[in-house]
Simulated scan of single mutants.
Amino acid sequence: MDKHEGPDAGTIRLDDPWYDGPAVDWGEGEGDGDCGGDAPLRSAGGRAAPADASEIYLEVQRSAAFQEVRSRYRGFVVPATAAFLLWYVAYVVAATAAPGFMARPVAGAVNVALLAGLGQFLSTFLLTWAYARHARLRRDRAALDLRWTVFEQERGHGRGRKREAGR
């Protein structure tokens, strides 16, 4: 979405794939929920388009692109979560099981426990930065492409319903 100035600044374009406006023609109005005709809608690839929104989302969920986005997500989140929890548990165990070690002075009034506690905060910020970077570089573009695919299929589905209802 482009930023612009003027009286309509800040408005959302209706063709924006991230815009979640009212789901027009989703099980509302005339008909029993089908597309109103015998011929299935055709997608850009010439295949029959799914009959409703839930089928569109299931088709996307089964797609290789979606599975790739999910595997990239899991590939970062699972090891990062495990490492962070291990680091946190090690800190708690060391604080309770080795108080003498944690009380050892490092520089002046600063001891090992204080450095480890500050390390917890630092590692939280570093993990947040790494997650945001990973999402931006490895997942956001593919996720946006998937969102555009769904958006286009939904638009095609909505047009097909309107076309069929107009007969």
Results as ranks from 00 to 15, higher is better:
residue 115 L to F: 02
residue 85 L to T: 09
residue 51 A to F: 02
residue 24 V to I: 10
residue 145 D to N: 09
residue 50 P to Q: 07
residue 53 A to F: 13
residue 10 G to H: 00
residue 166 G to C: 04
residue 157 H to V: 01
residue 107 A to L: 15
residue 40 P to D: 04
residue 46 G to N: 03
residue 93 V to A: 14
residue 36 G to K: 00
residue 9 A to D: 03
residue 39 A to C: 04
residue 59 E to D: 15
residue 70 R to T: 11
residue 132 A to S: 12
residue 43 S to D: 15
residue 87 W to I: 02
residue 153 Q to P: 00
residue 86 L to N: 08
residue 105 P to T: 04
residue 132 A to D: 12
residue 123 S to H: 13
residue 33 G to S: 04
residue 64 A to S: 13
residue 42 R to H: 08
residue 9 A to V: 02
residue 159 R to D: 12
residue 22 P to M: 06
residue 19 Y to K: 01
residue 53 A to Y: 13
residue 4 H to N: 06
residue 133 R to F: 11
residue 37 G to T: 15
residue 63 S to V: 05
residue 74 R to C: 14
residue 114 L to V: 14
residue 61 Q to P: 03
residue 93 V to R: 09
residue 158 G to M: 10
residue 112 V to D: 06
residue 61 Q to N: 12
residue 38 D to E: 15
residue 9 A to T: 02
residue 86 L to P: 00
residue 23 A to K: 15
residue 152 E to H: 11
residue 51 A to D: 10
residue 138 R to Q: 15
residue 70 R to F: 09
residue 32 D to W: 09
residue 80 A to V: 05
residue 77 V to N: 06
residue 164 E to R: 15
residue 29 G to Y: 01
residue 32 D to G: 13
residue 89 V to R: 02
residue 28 E to Q: 14
residue 9 A to C: 06
residue 131 Y to C: 07
residue 77 V to Y: 10
residue 105 P to W: 10
residue 117 G to L: 12
residue 106 V to D: 02
residue 90 A to L: 14
residue 106 V to A: 05
residue 131 Y to K: 04
residue 58 L to M: 15
residue 86 L to H: 07
residue 32 D to H: 14
residue 54 S to W: 14
residue 152 E to P: 01
residue 73 Y to D: 04
residue 68 E to V: 09
residue 67 Q to H: 13
residue 97 A to Y: 06
residue 72 R to W: 00
residue 150 V to C: 09
residue 134 H to G: 01
residue 150 V to W: 02
residue 16 D to V: 00
residue 142 A to D: 13
residue 11 T to Q: 11
residue 136 R to F: 06
residue 87 W to C: 06
residue 15 D to L: 00
residue 120 Q to D: 03
residue 152 E to N: 08
residue 100 G to W: 04
residue 7 P to S: 08
residue 84 F to P: 00
residue 162 K to R: 15
residue 114 L to F: 11
residue 18 W to D: 10
residue 68 E to T: 15
residue 16 D to Q: 01
residue 128 T to K: 01
residue 107 A to E: 11
residue 60 V to N: 07
residue 66 F to D: 05
residue 53 A to P: 06
residue 167 R to S: 04
residue 63 S to L: 07
residue 98 A to P: 00
residue 107 A to Y: 14
residue 105 P to R: 08
residue 107 A to T: 11
residue 48 A to N: 10
residue 150 V to D: 05
residue 5 E to L: 09
residue 38 D to F: 09
residue 69 V to H: 04
residue 133 R to V: 09
residue 59 E to S: 14
residue 93 V to P: 03
residue 81 T to E: 03
residue 98 A to R: 10
residue 59 E to F: 06
residue 17 P to D: 00
residue 141 R to T: 09
residue 66 F to L: 05
residue 24 V to N: 07
residue 30 E to L: 14
residue 16 D to N: 07
residue 13 R to P: 03
residue 166 G to K: 07
residue 150 V to G: 07
residue 112 V to I: 14
residue 25 D to E: 12
residue 136 R to A: 15
residue 44 A to L: 12
residue 66 F to C: 12
residue 23 A to D: 13
residue 65 A to Q: 12
residue 5 E to Q: 11
